[in-house]
Design a protein around this nucleic acid. Structure first.
Lengths: 235, 235
DNA sequence: CCGCAGCGTGACGCTTTTGTGACAGGTAAC
DNA sequence: GTTACCTGTCACAAAAGCGTCACGCTGCGG
């Protein structure tokens, strides 16, 4: 679950260290060396989370947090306070000012990443996806199961996502490039023909000669999931 | 949302004051003047929440909290610490020991009731304390026992909690990070792969080749407890 | 009937994910 | 103290998927 994180920290060495760890964890990091810069970035970029040093030149972290909370657009942005040992009594104040969590320096990179994850998840409660039932097939994201007339069908992760997408966008034709974007993600780079191979694997996993017809080829365009089985002209 | 609340407070006047307010808010209040009495009540009555004075004769509040957390049955009970001004640095210690919140004396009755409500709501998705019976396995939180066809199965605390969660949320796939949150707790930071190890220990504790199949791996997603044994594709 | 572009298919290294055994602390009971 | 668990974390082994390729088939326009 990658996020845009604003790091407000005046100490360059610490800033660098933290940023490196966050990047390695898959997050995008924006940096600010002082509160003013931080505020500007917040307004312009609307980060998903703010990592905020307690001691800042010019404006204290608490004041920074207070301003974030007073603006409607930035009110919901989670804040994690960074405090040094010996400022511990301030943690309490930090929490009361509206920080969602705090970490005492020095901290382990793992703890930092874990707390970020926890805060982000707390803010964005997971949406439970509903099961799809179509053409005698049933696909349930919650249990990660696919069944045809009660009989379980074993699919690999990619096949599962592929079928899920096709079923939730049934009757529509999707080009290989569309499928790559939606199922693989728009950041990955794989051959378009790879889609063909997974379609094949998906078909052979479904009951051959029966449900595999639900996954149809549209020559020159792409693939489609359809409950209307194509009639093979008996010529 | 009325609750059974245990109040551990040695000062009679304060005890009386708090109890009156809680009762007026619709809660049931049990009182203890010292830690020993408190512990006994906790074990016997399993309150929904513990209001815990920081300074206690005999045993500190932190020690009290620690013991609560170390017992399987009382682990999930939320704790709110009561601290006097000037003990503020201890708040941090209190939080880190496992308290869910803290309140500084003197406090307003309204604040107290509000915080109680907040903590209870946060803990709201309480798992049932009833025995679970599923797939030939029986797990009883009350007696802390697991049996398969009458035969007892020995599990460590973590394995027990893990199995308990999986069984009470059967058929559903849980990612490692979800399991860490639900079984270990949000404030614990351990490697995700630790889940794997405990799954393995859990499996090998269950009857090999038989009940261990109930704990299933969903590659790329996580784990699942299911009575529907996965069909191994007969290739 | 031919050629060509599009698609199906089987095979094959390779990477990622998961299982497993071992180990160093830590804790509670003794 | 000592003993017997638990626990979290490794490193390594095993397994399962994945992406690509080469080749063969198919349908369509000439």
């Amino acid at each position: 679950m990658p996020a845009n994180i604003l790091l407000v920290e005046d100490e360059p060495a610490i800033q660098e260290l933290i940023a490196a760890n966050l990047t390695r964890a898959g997050h995008t990091v924006m940096r600010a060396g002082d509160a003013e810069t931080g505020q500007r970035i917040v307004r312009e970029a609307l980060p998903d989370l703010v990592l905020l040093d307690w001691m800042l030149p010019g404006m204290s972290g608490v004041e920074f947090a207070r301003r974030l909370r007073s603006d409607e657009r930035t009110r919901a942005i989670p804040i994690i306070m960074l405090t040094a040992r010996g400022e511990e009594q301030d943690k309490v104040l930090g929490l009361e000012t509206g920080a969602d969590d705090y970490i005492t320096k020095p901290f382990s990179p793992r703890e930092l990443v874990a707390r970020i994850k926890a805060v982000l998840r707390r803010r964005a409660p997971q949406v439970t996806e509903d099961a799809v039932e179509l053409g005698g097939l049933r696909l349930d994201p919650a249990t990660h199961r696919v069944t045809a007339a009660g009989e379980p069908i074993n699919l690999g992760p990619t096949e599962f996502r592929l079928l899920h997408f096709l079923m939730t966008h049934a009757e529509r034709v999707h080009s290989r490039s569309q499928l790559l974007d939606q199922v693989w993600g728009d950041h990955v780079f794989v051959e378009e023909r790879t889609v063909d191979v997974h379609i094949r694997r998906l078909r052979s996993a479904l009951e051959p000669g029966l449900h595999d017809r639900l996954v149809q080829t549209v020559r020159g365009s792409g693939y489609r999931f359809s409950t209307e089985i194509e009639t093979t002209p008996a010529n």
